[in-house]
Design a binder for these strands. Sequence first.
DNA 1: CACTTGACCTGTCCGC
DNA 2: TGCGGACAGGTCAAGT
Length: 288
Amino acid sequence: MPELPEVETVRRGLSELIIGHTIVTAQSDNPKSFPNSPQQVKSFLIGAKVIDIRRRAKLLMIDLSTNYTLVIHLKMTGQLVYRGETAFGAGHPNDSLIGELPDRSTRVTLEFKDGSKLFFNDQRKFGWMRLMPIDEVADLPFMQKVGPEPLEADFTLAQFTTRFTRRGRMSIKAALLDQTVIAGVGNIYADESLWGAKIHPKRLVNTIMSAEFEALYIELRLVMNLAIDKGGSTDKNYVNAEGKRGSYMDFARVFRREGLECSRCGTTIIKFKVAGRGTHICPNCQRL
DNA sequence: CACTTGACCTGTCCGC
DNA sequence: TGCGGACAGGTCAAGT
């Protein structure tokens, strides 16, 4: 499930692959995945050149020479995979997680002038891409209320702690997952950072000590930066812009490790539900 | 207003 | 082997 590190990995990969390319055709099989009208597509997407690719929280924005942008949310199973005409042809040896494209989960296909293509795949159809004027992005309700970027250099411990104060009666895990508190945290990095900070996910925010907030602030940034270094986490579906897996799961300390030993104390890791999400902890390191 | 639950989807896995 | 149901989780709308 793409969270901040996965979306950032896709952003970096796509930046290398499609900036400067001109879109010549666009096809979609599903209006929910790509709701724009044919007229909008013809006027603002076809013939447009890719100028820049940005990320905010878990959203990607592919900025175009028409002053429009493709805003994209991958949700749980979305993939953005680029294929050159020859580099990843059928049967070509590579370590891609997926095969020939398009396949049955392909929702949108963009073709560039040189014949290469960008595929938006999404098994569960929760994800979407939407063409809109660049200067209207800031007006989206989500953009109005989303919290700060946790990896920005100027994001301080004081800001981090303050963001939680209005969520005092919520569990710390629910607050971490709340995009209006901090941007980009999902289930994987919530569990991983709480283990690192030795905080039980059900602890109410107003019981968290300042030293624990400091540990969580440090761990969250550590874990997300490591995940970006490793190209993100591939649990089931996630792949980067070349269709390849991320390797953070090889370094995960609790996520999807129920039944295995905690690397810090040897206690068996357990799984249960918090805030409606599958949650993994070391019951010895993380206590209520 | 603060917070929780259900809906959106489809593929996979488990138990009978 | 087939089948029903639980489960996976990001976000928004609806409900408490």
